[in-house]
Amino acid sequence: MTGRSLKKVITVAAAGILMATSAGVAAADIQGPDVASYQHPGGGGINWFGVRAAGYQFAMLKATEGLSYVNPFFVQDSMSMRVAGVARGTYHFARPNLPPEPQAAFYSALVLGQNGPLDLPPVLDLENSGGLPPDALIDWTHRYLNTVQAMTGRRPIIYTYPRFWQTAMADTNQFTSYPLWIADYRGNDQPEVPGGWPAWSFWQTTDSGSIPGIGAGVDLNVYSGAQGDFTRYANMPFSGSGRGSS
């Protein structure tokens, strides 16, 4: 996953990039990083209390890749995020050269569901075609998503970027019922939305941000409000405007 700087995210957010939530509450201040093993240089931990104190309310955490890779910091980060009050999304990096159902089962078994407190829905990170032509990749994606939804009980989010979707997925509009997490780093007021999606839900604006508590450059994301009130979407155990307690 890729992007720019924290300053850019703040600038874009301040320009009013976000839609209102279904409750009419602006979501411009609902931001969070996505992290993998790269954000643990030298094996060091992430200070999730520091992340939350800096105002970040969620994070997307890499769980698995293909059929064998598990993020070695997944359990550590999952536990620490919950204690710190940071809502957790988890993602699987797709390897479409391998069958989808076993990958979906591998991911779902590791994350142990996505329905608990502070859980965002599961995420499919789709940015590699595995050499499949568009029709085959579209079929692969349907099968993966259907399996994950059946196993976790929640409709997955799709992460991708415009050019990949327009080429590898032939800009298909078959997935518009799934929330979209789009990567677009060009600094526009809105990201480019492919595939006929009526709206984006998360926007990855940079891969070189900086956050207190994380000892390496990090991707930064913002929530649009397209899925409604963030506290409900993330199963947060408190109410309000979407802000959690520090």
Rank of each mutant, 00 (worst) to 15 (best):
G3L: 01
S5E: 02
A15C: 03
G16S: 11
I17P: 05
L18P: 04
A20Q: 14
S22F: 05
D29T: 09
I30P: 00
S37D: 06
H40R: 11
G43H: 13
G50P: 12
A53P: 06
N71A: 15
M81G: 10
A84S: 04
T90N: 14
R95W: 14
A105V: 08
Y107G: 07
Y107F: 01
S108W: 00
G116V: 02
E127N: 03
N128V: 13
G130S: 10
L132C: 11
T141L: 15
L145N: 11
T147K: 13
V148D: 01
A150C: 03
G153V: 07
R154G: 03
I158M: 10
T160E: 12
W165K: 07
M169V: 09
T172K: 04
T176E: 08
L180V: 07
D189R: 11
D189E: 09
G195E: 08
W197I: 00
A199K: 09
W200N: 08
F202G: 10
T205N: 10
T206R: 11
T206C: 09
P212R: 12
G215W: 11
D219E: 05
S224P: 10
G225T: 01
T231P: 13
Y233N: 00
A234E: 04
P237A: 04
P237F: 05
S241R: 07
S241G: 03
G242N: 05
S246A: 15
